[in-house]
Design a protein around this nucleic acid. Structure first.
Length: 512
RNA sequence: GGUCCGUUCGUCUAGGGGUUAGGACGCAUCCCUUUCACGGAUGAAACACGGGUUCGAUUCCCGUACGGACUACCA
């Protein structure tokens, strides 16, 4: 009988959730759903000095926006709670003490000044890697070097202390990563990491092992930055005697800067003009702000699809996947090993694809909302025609409005660069003729009619239509580029088109 | 510096001992067209390097180079 898959996403509430974290959450979600298991969210807030108010809400809202909510979380507790490490504080010490008891950990009383002095001494002695380990710990103040009585006295007096793991001197530590295969590290390169901090809180290393064990986590899917400490975690599972239920590890490739090299950072986004966070963020205390994909106009499905393909692919030529399809297609062995550079152009392409696949009704909603944000209204009888006319020209929902503007708002001024080239005597003749014809017209008016009438006007003046088309567009929309003109005319209706032409005729001096 | 991880078109990637090394984004050209787009077609563009193993290596092995992560009482 196979065990239920349980995975967790374990962010720290230290600020907005980085896009790399979002992808980690997504892969955890996809794996859990694919395996018919559970996706948990655990808040790793053991560093009280870095806690940022609002960050938890941000995490929750981000997952909600993407449609990948956790099955168990601080806001939806299952039966292995609490789901905030700060609320589990009381349980960690006992586990650390068990390790001390078993000889796998020890108390250390060194002050930060003493630690600093030790590092300096080792550096001066050209020790390649100054660290608290099996050698150096013999020279520090800890329960391994101090007499038992003194240790007891120090503890009793309330002197601050930490508990450090006692890394064995010679041991080959190995783990079988689901993405990277066997990874082997010698224990001599590991250091005696702090397990319990002097403030009584556990470090990540202790907390994540204890909690993953207690929460029944079967697979740990996290970023590659954790790979170097994974051997320590393996050792800890062994020390606790939990090897049998140790989760399987999968270390995800990093998200890299689009240009040059290195981990993708907020700075890169700012510099290149794209967000690296799912939602807008504002830290009320520091005034720090960050742009979000949602506010930039990205659709959650498109963003999700884009994100899924940053390091994973289905193995065939398909590119467009709904969340359900992603779940169906997902597998950890199709996750790549190497770092992935972030390409915003691809994200835009995904957004275009998803925008265009929306129904007219959905697009109308988006257009109306965008217009409203600009203080404008879209006449109900024109909305559908507008979105159908403009959607193929749009990347974001905001473009629906940008592209529709020229229909909704009559031009007050004209693109003079176009006017200088195209606004000539021929154009004026044709337009005058056309305006007159439109004013007199009262039948049904569609794109076909608009064009036939325009053609007739041109013919009447013995002028080739193609020669004056740009001028016609300029007169009615004020610019030289835009959606299909005849369709625009159809939406406007003959009277409005005539009015606009008349305004242009009255305003624009003949230049060309 | 040390430990660990990685390296196929500019980018995301497929592939895998013998292939014209495939797709997508982007780019270019052409077609469509009343403009700009959309769409269609075409094109330029990659196996980091050096040794092995092999009849044969981009693919397997070992080095080198390059890149990255980690190296806190942060996660």
């Amino acid at each position: 009988m196979s065990q239920e898959v349980r995975v967790r996403f374990a962010p720290s509430p230290t600020g907005p959730l980085h896009i790399g974290g979002v992808r980690t959450a997504l892969y955890n979600y996809l794996f859990a759903k694919k395996m018919g298991g559970k996706f948990l969210l655990r808040i790793e807030d053991t560093d009280q000095t870095r806690f940022v108010p609002g960050a938890e809400d941000y995490i929750q809202e981000s997952l909600a926006w993407l449609g990948i909510p956790a099955d168990e979380s601080p806001w939806k507790p299952g039966d292995v709670g609490p789901y905030r490490q700060s609320e589990r504080k009381s349980s960690y010490m006992q586990y650390a003490l068990d390790l001390v008891e078993a000889g796998h950990a020890y108390y250390a009383f060194d002050t930060s000044e003493e630690l600093e002095a030790m590092r300096e001494r080792l550096t001066a002695a050209r020790v390649v890697q100054p660290q608290y380990n099996s050698i150096t710990r013999t020279q520090m103040k800890n329960s391994l070097t101090l007499p038992e009585e003194e240790v007891k006295a120090r503890l009793a007096s309330g002197e601050p202390y930490v508990i450090r793991v006692k890394i064995p001197r010679k041991e080959e530590v190995r783990l079988n990563d689901m993405i990277r295969g066997w990874v082997m590290v010698h224990s001599s390169t590991l250091d005696d990491k702090v397990l319990m901090k002097s403030d009584g809180m556990p470090t990540y290393h202790l907390a994540n092992i204890v909690d993953d064990h207690l929460m029944g986590i079967t697979h740990v899917i996290r970023g590659e930055e954790w790979l170097p400490s994974a051997p320590l975690h393996v050792l800890l599972y062994k020390f606790f005697g939990w090897e049998d239920t140790m989760p399987q590890f999968a270390h995800l490739p990093l998200l890299l800067k689009p240009d040059g090299n290195g981990k993708l950072s907020k700075r890169d986004g700012d510099k290149l003009g794209f967000p690296v966070f799912p939602l807008n963020w504002e830290n009320k205390e520091t005034g720090e702000t960050a742009a979000g994909f949602r506010e930039q106009g990205y659709l959650p499905d498109a963003f999700l699809n884009f994100l899924a393909f940053l390091g994973w692919n289905p193995g065939d030529d398909r590119e467009l996947f709904s969340l359900d399809e992603l779940v169906e297609a997902f597998s950890i062995d199709r996750i790549g090993k190497s770092g992935t550079k972030f390409d915003i152009a691809k994200a835009k392409w995904y957004n275009e694809q998803y925008l265009r696949s929306k129904t007219s009704a959905e697009l109308v909603k988006l257009l109306v909302a965008e217009a409203k944000a600009e203080g404008m209204e879209i006449p109900a009888d024109k909305a559908e025609a507008l979105v159908n006319l403009t959607k193929d020209r749009c990347t974001f929902a905001a473009d629906l409005w940008n592209e529709s503007k020229c229909v909704i708002i009559a031009p007050k001024e004209f693109d003079m660069a176009v006017a200088e080239k195209r606004w000539n005597a021929d154009a004026v003749k044709v337009l005058s003729n056309y305006a007159g014809a439109l004013k007199a017209y009262s039948g049904t008016f569609d794109a076909e009619t608009a064009k036939t009438m325009l053609g007739a006007s041109a013919e009447a003046e013995e002028i080739k239509l193609g020669k004056v088309m740009q001028a016609v567009r300029l007169a009615v929309t004020g610019s030289g580029a835009g959606p299909d003109l005849m369709e625009v005319f159809a939406i406007l209706g003959p009277q409005e088109v005539a009015n606009r032409i008349q305004f242009a005729l009255d305003t624009l001096p003949v230049i060309a």
